[in-house]
């Protein structure tokens, strides 16, 4: 007589399929602990879960496009989004690295006060003084300079257009290339 399948289950639970997704698929770029080491790929560790959920849904539904990300999307199902977001939100972010302290100081002024002449708001209002974000706005702290710069340029060109009310598109239009580099440098050290 065959043993019922339920009785044969191992004492240890099988690996969570979503965690497996993170550690086998996402890890290639973002790393299993979300602390990506390649500057073009964003760090996800400690990112706001609400932001990750929205971005994943936007990727799956075509509101955000990225040619590097696209081949991997077929392995992400809509039902996995919430858990996958929670997984990366729960990872511990590593320390950020500032490469150019002088540039970072110029970036701090923009981050905290904006640019009054050009009508750029301070980033800290939404993304918070230490860049941790909140349930409505993403964490920026410690992000790679190259990724932040690329996203700002994509917002400015309209290549990325999934921001609330077009706010990031309008703000990025008001920033110079040098200001974008500066603020990205400051964010990297938060």
């Amino acid at each position: 007589m065959a043993v019922p399948l339920a009785c044969a289950a191992p004492a240890l639970a099988a690996p969570d399929p979503v965690e497996t997704l993170a550690t086998t698929v996402c890890q290639a770029c973002h790393m299993s602990d979300g602390n990506s080491v390649v500057p073009q790929f964003p760090k996800l560790a400690g990112q706001q879960a609400t932001y990750l959920e929205k971005q994943l849904a936007d990727f799956l539904e075509g509101r955000r496009r990225n040619e590097v990300m696209e081949p991997f999307l077929s392995q992400v199902k809509a039902r996995d989004i919430k858990e996958l977001a929670a997984y990366y939100a729960a990872q511990v972010p590593g320390p950020g690295v500032v490469l150019d302290p002088e540039l970072a100081e110029a970036g701090r002024r923009i981050y905290e006060d904006g640019n009054e002449g050009a009508g750029v708001p301070g980033c800290e209002a939404c993304h918070q003084l230490q860049g941790e974000g909140n349930v409505r706005y993403p964490r920026l702290a410690g992000q790679h300079q190259a990724y932040t710069i690329q996203e700002m340029l994509d917002f400015r060109s309209g290549q990325r257009a999934n921001d609330k009310g077009g706010l990031m598109r309008r703000i990025s239009e008001r920033l110079t290339d040098e200001e974008i580099r500066a603020v990205a440098e400051y964010i990297a050290g938060l």
């Binding site: 800290e124 209002a125 409505r136």
Partner: peptide
């Protein structure tokens, strides 16, 4: 207060 968050940047 929550909606005004964005406005506080300026």
């Amino acid at each position: 207060a929550i909606t005004f968050e964005v406005c506080e940047g300026c």
